[in-house]
């Protein structure tokens, strides 16, 4: 777990907010509290961590916040806590990608476990994201010819066939290939395939 993970606690009720924050702090995590979903979204700076949010709040409700976060591509795990647990609401929230749904008053262990899982998840997501970004960067450095070559290599075509398709000499293909592999930081075709899969572009 990265040390700069933050747990965001969003609840309009001060007592709940403070007590929850206090609880989470007791396992040594960093907590930032917000009085409303609006406030949270305004101040969020792509930190890693997770969100503990109430469903029923004045202004933007928890479910609305969930939608907003999706559209802003904020991928923090969202843990809902609520005093009105009803099944339809819970199902809706979870289907839309909530990480967990806990009823108030809650057992402290349950909440904390959920938070920690969330953080771990977030961590992994973060890592994946970073990876994704770097891959995209790499791809961007490729020339068009190199891209074409990469595409065919990942399709499993031998150089001879690639040369024929691109109407160049085998030697040219080999040169492009070598440069591409370097740029993509792939040491084997298998690795290259994995990388392109992650990027999802090819």
């Amino acid at each position: 777990m990265s040390n700069d993970a933050i747990v965001f606690v969003v609840d309009d009720d001060e007592a709940v907010r403070q007590s929850t924050a206090w609880l989470i702090e007791s396992i040594g995590l960093k907590v930032i509290t917000f009085i409303s979903a609006d406030e949270f979204l305004e101040n969020y700076n792509n930190e890693s961590g997770c969100v503990v949010m109430d469903v029923r709040m004045p202004g933007m409700s928890g479910l609305e916040a969930q939608e907003e976060m999706k559209s802003r591509k904020i991928s923090l795990p969202l843990i809902f806590i609520t005093g009105h647990g009803d099944v339809p609401m819970a199902v809706r929230a979870l289907k839309r990608g909530a990480f967990d749904f806990i009823e108030k008053p809650f057992n402290d262990q349950i909440l904390l476990d959920s938070v920690q899982r969330g953080l771990k998840h977030s961590d992994e997501v973060m890592k994946s994201l970073i990876k994704h970004q770097s891959i995209d960067k790499r791809i961007a450095t490729l020339t068009p010819r190199e891209k074409e070559v990469m595409m065919r290599v990942t399709q499993g075509k031998p150089n001879k066939v690639i040369a024929h398709e691109l109407n160049v000499s085998i030697k040219t293909v080999e040169v492009h290939r070598a440069r591409m592999m370097e740029k993509m930081e792939a040491h084997s075709v298998a690795e290259l395939v994995k990388t392109t899969l992650i990027s999802g572009q090819f």
Partner: peptide, 24 residues
Amino acid sequence: AHELNQPLSAINTYVQGSIRRINM
């Protein structure tokens, strides 16, 4: 129900948190 739930939840959390801290 909602109104009462809030303080109740907070009470619960504080108390459990205290126990946790003491245990830890």
